[in-house]
Simulated assay, not measured.
Amino acid sequence: MASIQHNGAAATAGRTASDGLARLALKSDGVVTGLNGLGYLALATVLDSFFGFDTKVQYPVGVFLLVYGIGVLVLGTRETINRNGLGLVLVANLGWAALSIVVLATDALTPTGAGQVWIVLQALVVGGFAALQYTGLKRL
């Protein structure tokens, strides 16, 4: 009986050493963003009073973040990283970070103190993902 030996080469055929950072940045972003979206959906009524964000805002944002996170995660797990897709995620993340600061500066959501801190933290995390994705894109 013949046996087949698998050394993993076929599984990583499309992956290169230069796409490691981009792949890590996309996967991490996808997981964190998806979990954030799940948190908004599962805890909306609790977060309503804690952060000061109305559930009418949290539910659609939660759905968006969950779907977006899944899309980013899928992009990061493809055999070959799509440069255009990575660039689009990078721009979207920069937009989210900038919009977070605008929302905070204009008091658009009238957040509590904890909500203000949360907005800043989200902007920093998303901006950090964008920086990693930019560096990863340059390495592709």
Rank of each mutant, 00 (worst) to 15 (best):
D29K: 02
A123F: 04
R139D: 07
V63R: 02
W118P: 00
T80H: 05
L124A: 15
T33F: 06
N36L: 14
T80S: 06
R83A: 15
A22I: 08
A17F: 10
G76D: 01
S18L: 02
V103W: 09
T80K: 14
G14W: 10
I81W: 00
K27I: 11
A130R: 05
V89I: 14
G62N: 07
V117T: 15
L75N: 01
A108C: 01
L94M: 11
A13N: 04
N7T: 13
R83S: 09
G76F: 01
T80C: 00
G34Y: 04
N82V: 01
N82P: 01
Q116H: 07
D29E: 11
A2V: 11
G71P: 04
Q58T: 00
V103P: 00
L24R: 03
G136S: 07
A9V: 06
V61F: 13
G115Y: 08
R83P: 00
A105Y: 03
L99S: 14
M1F: 13
A11T: 02
R139H: 03
R139N: 10
L90R: 10
L24N: 05
V102T: 06
N82T: 02
A13I: 12
L21G: 02
L26F: 01
N7H: 15
D19G: 03
A2S: 14
T12E: 13
L137R: 10
T110E: 10
G87T: 05
A25I: 03
A97E: 06
